[in-house]
Amino acid sequence: MGVFQKWFLRLAILVLACLSAWAVCGCSDPFPPDTLVDRLRILGVRAEPPDVDLSGQCSMDALVADPAGQSRALQYTWAVCMVQITGVAKDIQCPGPDSFVFGDSASADLSVPEFVAWAQEKGFGMDLGDTDLPPDMTLDEIPLIIGLKISAPDGEQVSAIKRVRLRLTDEAQVNSNPELTGLQKQGRDWTVHLKDTVSLVPLVSDDSAQLYIPEGEQEEHAEDLVFSWYSTTGEFRDRWTVKDVSDAGEPLEENEWILPEEEDQLGAQKLWVIVRDGRWGIDWAEFGFSLNP
């Protein structure tokens, strides 16, 4: 059993250790919550459509928050990277030396034929019509790793990766991005107050959670929609909320926004909700609030 056993044992021991630490000193997380956006960050990257075929093209854009930047000009680099993302962390350079650069603005179009021609010229083994798979196995799709690097004039840099599914056969299932249609807030308007706890529910279109057949299974499943929450002030009860259609339990997409006590936070604030379908489909929305005493 060896390492299998150790994997679960480690998790169990970690839980025991956390419980001990909690029982002994009631320690809390010393870092600011990652939902608090207080500097340049990439919050989401979208491909439209989220998967393409060998002759296709997709448009890339990103949700970038720069609350302290005062609308400064940012420099973008979009590239397809010849790297593998595995369970072992590596020093990924993406965009890096072996990258197909295809854009330098806030959005960019990726042409798959142009990328394939580049890869073949560079000798990256992109002979996609004749893979070396065993005869009883077919490869319906492969992921393309898209890298985005954003640089600010003062040298600050952030980077992100995003996968785009490249369909190689007609057997590959087609996905589409979910659609976030709004945000439901209790109360009359978009004004919030210090020390408030605000209940929020994201709204999505009916067809956002598509039906698909997971790998190795026969039956169709509905996508699980996972919502991410970010804001320029306060914190959220949950880092993620889930609209898990397959679960019999109550829907969990509702979240609570816990606003701060400090008066220096008063004024205009932003909140972002991002929805992901677990199959590399994504959508987002930005909301403005006024934080009052």
Partner: peptide, 18 residues
Amino acid sequence: IMGGVFDADSDNYLPLPG
């Protein structure tokens, strides 16, 4: 760990090890 790169599909950061 020398830094992280944002994984836009999982809404998490991948560690960049030294």
